[in-house]
């Protein structure tokens, strides 16, 4: 055991297995002894093994899988670029989607020209002991059977219409979620942005925290909104017009913005967000409610 530990300590990066696809869209690295790798021309690439950690990176979509033990299959999207077909991880697993990596890859491979107009970046990171992913080029399902922490950071500048006037809005958005287990459907395409999580179901106890800060350049205004709380189960559903969060069981949420604070508690609470993930509606079952809130609040 000691000899094995010494051998692992003496292992240099050169000794670790690494593979980079011909266009750099797929990188596998950090696999130590006992790994397996299979390549088929114009077909799937499969890899499995252990590392400290081992990595699979799909640079074209900004997806990174990092774990001490992992296996994955990537299939060709076109002649050289790959997408993740399936993966399984164990021991200190991370599943990351980072739009900045995808953008850097596309600019480097010159599939898009460098530009300053697209300034939105979004990064989702899921930390857990185990993950199990299966998907296509457009959609994938991620199952997390063990305790998980989901964090997300988004920031950017976008052109909006306010009072029929063109304005420039800058935003910062951070989200964190802890749960005992869960599953998500994700959009692995690089342009999914803040809507990369299409749906999710998380089993509790679930704690949820979201902070969003917005500034509008022309108005020199700044607003801040926070949502913190916990529940037994939490479900996220995304559609064309926004996102709905269903929180169930022992729900206790606090929403704070520049206009006030709202406590929501009970058996079930539903939050509705618009396509920019700004809150537009909250509905509760089995209140009590406290204070007032400018968005539409229903109580049954």
């Amino acid at each position: 055991m000691i000899a094995l530990a010494i051998a692992l300590m003496l292992q240099t990066p050169e000794d670790l297995f690494g593979y980079t696809s011909s266009d750099g869209s797929l990188e596998i690295s950090g696999l130590s002894k006992g790994y397996e790798f299979s390549y088929r021309p114009q077909g799937a690439i499969t890899a499995s093994g252990s590392g400290s950690p081992a990595l699979i990176k799909l640079n074209s979509s900004g997806l990174t899988i990092r774990a001490n033990r992992l296996s994955g299959t990537a299939e060709p999207l076109d002649k050289k670029t790959y997408f993740l077909k399936r993966s399984q991880t164990a021991e200190t697993s991370q599943f990351i989607m980072d739009s900045a990596i995808a953008r850097a890859f596309r600019e480097k491979s010159r599939t898009v020209a460098p530009t300053t107009t697209e300034t939105e970046t979004n990064r989702f990171e899921l930390d857990s002991d185990r993950t199990d992913y299966e998907g296509s080029a457009n959609e994938g399902e991620l199952k997390i059977p063990s305790a998980l922490m989901l964090t997300s950071h988004g920031e950017g500048t976008r052109a909006i219409q306010k009072n029929n006037l063109p304005m420039t809005q800058s935003y910062l958005q951070d989200l964190s979620l802890h749960a005992s287990s869960g599953r998500m459907t994700v959009d692995p395409r690089p342009n999914a942005g803040i809507h990369a999580i299409k749906s999710g179901e998380f089993e509790g106890p679930v704690t949820f925290s979201s902070i969003r800060t917005e500034t509008i350049k022309e108005e020199k205004s700044k607003s801040r909104y926070t949502l913190n709380g916990h529940c037994d189960r939490l479900r996220i559903v995304t559609d064309a017009t926004g996102e709905t969060i269903f929180a169930e069981g022992n729900v206790d949420f606090v929403i704070t913005d520049d206009m006030g604070t709202l406590h929501l508690g009970g058996k079930q609470v539903r939050f509705r967000f618009d396509s920019s993930l700004e809150p537009v509606e909250a509905e509760g079952l089995g209140a009590p409610f406290k204070t007032t809130y400018p968005i539409k609040v229903k109580q049954r």
Partner: peptide
């Protein structure tokens, strides 16, 4: 025009 990439650390 191979679509095979580059691998290192192979035994």
């Amino acid at each position: 025009d191979s679509d095979a990439g580059m691998a290192t650390g192979i035994t």
